[in-house]
Amino acid sequence: EQLARLKREFNENRYLTERRRQQLSSELGLNEAQIKIWFQNERA
């Protein structure tokens, strides 16, 4: 579920704002660094 949600977010926007990253962190139970790194890896 977390992965599917991250992929949906990535398809909508390849870059997250700090606020959006905080929201996802709270909703998915991941820390902000994990989300940031995931997005960086997807863009690579």
Rank of each mutant, 00 (worst) to 15 (best):
F39K: 00
I37T: 11
Y15R: 05
R21M: 15
F39M: 10
L24H: 00
L24K: 01
R14L: 03
Q23N: 08
R21H: 03
E12M: 10
E27F: 05
S26F: 13
I37C: 10
L6P: 05
R5N: 06
F39W: 15
E18S: 13
S25R: 04
A4P: 03
N31Q: 11
N13E: 03
E32P: 11
F10H: 01
E1M: 08
K7D: 04
A33M: 14
R8T: 09
Q34V: 15
N41G: 06
N13D: 08
E9D: 04
Q2P: 03
R14H: 10
K7M: 10
S25E: 08
K7T: 08
L28R: 00
T17G: 07
Y15T: 10
E1G: 06
E32C: 06
Q34P: 01
L3R: 04
E42D: 04
L24M: 03
R19A: 15
R19T: 13
S25L: 14
W38R: 00
L6K: 03
L30P: 00
E18M: 07
R43C: 11
R14K: 13
R5E: 05
R5A: 12
Q2T: 12
R20L: 10
I35Y: 01
A4Y: 05
L3M: 08
E42F: 11
L30I: 12
N11Q: 14
L24V: 01
E32W: 09
R19G: 12
W38H: 01
Q22T: 07
E27S: 05
K36M: 15
A4C: 14
Y15V: 12
L24E: 01
F10Y: 10
N13I: 05
S26D: 12
R5M: 09
S26M: 15
Q23G: 05
E27N: 02
G29E: 06
E27K: 04
N13V: 00
A44Y: 10
R5I: 13
A4K: 10
N13A: 03
R43V: 10
N31C: 15
Q22R: 13
E12G: 02
N11G: 11
I37L: 12
I35N: 01
Q40V: 07
R14N: 11
R5S: 09
W38K: 03
E32N: 03
E12R: 12
R19S: 14
Y15L: 07
Q23V: 12
R21G: 12
L30Y: 03
N13S: 06
R5L: 07
L16H: 02
N11F: 10
Q34M: 14
Q22N: 07
E27T: 05
R19E: 15
I37H: 12
E12N: 11
I37P: 00
I35E: 00
F10E: 02
T17P: 04
Q34E: 14
Q22E: 08
W38Q: 01
R8K: 14
K36F: 13
L16E: 07
E1T: 07
F10L: 03
E9F: 06
N13M: 04
N31V: 05
R8C: 13
L3W: 08
A33K: 10
E42T: 03
